[in-house]
C-alpha cells in the first residue's frame, strides 16, 4: 500500500458515498445515469468474486464489501425506490455497445485464460468506459448539479491517483500491470474535458454547464 493508492481508494469511496447520499437525501436521482451505475455494479461484481476465494487483508475485504453494497444500493434507489425521478429520456447510451466488445477483448487480451482472471480483465476494461453513459447524459442535458460534478470529480481523481500508484510501484517494487495501466489511462483521459470544466467553473462557484 502506498499513499497514492490509499488516496485513490479514499477518493473512490468518497465518490460512491457522495452519490449515495445525494440520491438518498434529495430523494431524487435526477441527472444520474442509471446505466453507468449498472455498469459499475457489474464492474465490482466481476472484479470482487475473489472475495470468495482469497483473503488479502481486512482492509481489502472491507472495501470490496462496501463498494459492492453501495453500488447495488445505488442501482436499487435509481430503478426502484426513486424510480419516478429517473430521467430515462436522457439516459440513452447503449450499454451493449460497451459490454459486448469488452467481453470479447477480455477473452483475447488477458494475463491468463482462467475464469476469475478473464472476469477480472473484463472488469478492468469495463470500468475504463463505465462512466460514458453518465458523461453522455451530462452532455445531453447540457448541465449537471453541483453535487453530481463533485461525484464525477472524485471518481475521475481516483483512477488518476491509481496511475500515480502504478508509477510508484514500478519504481519501488518493479511491479506493473499493463492491462490495468492502459485501461486506467483511457479511463482518466475520458474525464479530461470534465476536469477542465470542473476546475474552471465549479471551483469558481458556477454551475457545471457544457457548451451547448
Amino acid at each position: 500500500m502506498n499513499l497514492f493508492r490509499l488516496a485513490g481508494d479514499v477518493s473512490h469511496l468518497l465518490a460512491i458515498i457522495i452519490l449515495l447520499l445525494k440520491i438518498w437525501r434529495t430523494r431524487s436521482c435526477a441527472g444520474i445515469s442509471g446505466k453507468s451505475q449498472i455498469l459499475f455494479a457489474l464492474v465490482f461484481t466481476t472484479r470482487y468474486l475473489d472475495l470468495l476465494t482469497t483473503f488479502i487483508s481486512f482492509y481489502n475485504t472491507t472495501m470490496k464489501v462496501i463498494y459492492i453494497g453501495c453500488s447495488y444500493a445505488t442501482v436499487w434507489m435509481i430503478y426502484a425506490k426513486f424510480k419516478a425521478t429517473y430521467d430515462s429520456n436522457h439516459d440513452t447510451f447503449r450499454m451493449e455497445f460497451l459490454v459486448i466488445p469488452i467481453a470479447a477483448l477480455s477473452l483475447l487480451v488477458n494475463h491468463d485464460f482462467a475464469p476469475l482472471e478473464i472476469l477480472w480483465t473484463f472488469s478492468i476494461y469495463l470500468e475504463s468506459v463505465a462512466i460514458l453513459p453518465q458523461l453522455f447524459m451530462v452532455s445531453k442535458t447540457g448541465e449537471a448539479e453541483t453535487i453530481t460534478s463533485h461525484y464525477l470529480f472524485a471518481l475521475g481523481l481516483y483512477r488518476a491517483l491509481y496511475l500515480m500508484n502504478w508509477i510508484w510501484r514500478f519504481f519501488a517494487e518493479g511491479f506493473f500491470d499493463l492491462i490495468a495501466i492502459v485501461a486506467g489511462l483511457v479511463q482518466t483521459i475520458l474525464y479530461c474535458d470534465f476536469f477542465y470544466l470542473y476546475i474552471t467553473k465549479v471551483l469558481k462557484g458556477k454551475k457545471l454547464s457544457l457548451p451547448a
Binding site: 481508494d9 472484479r47 472495501m63 477480472w120 500491470d177
Partner: peptide, 10 residues
Amino acid sequence: HDLTAKHDEL
C-alpha cells in the same frame, strides 16, 4: 512476477 497470483488492488 505472476500477475494473476493475486490482484491486491481494489
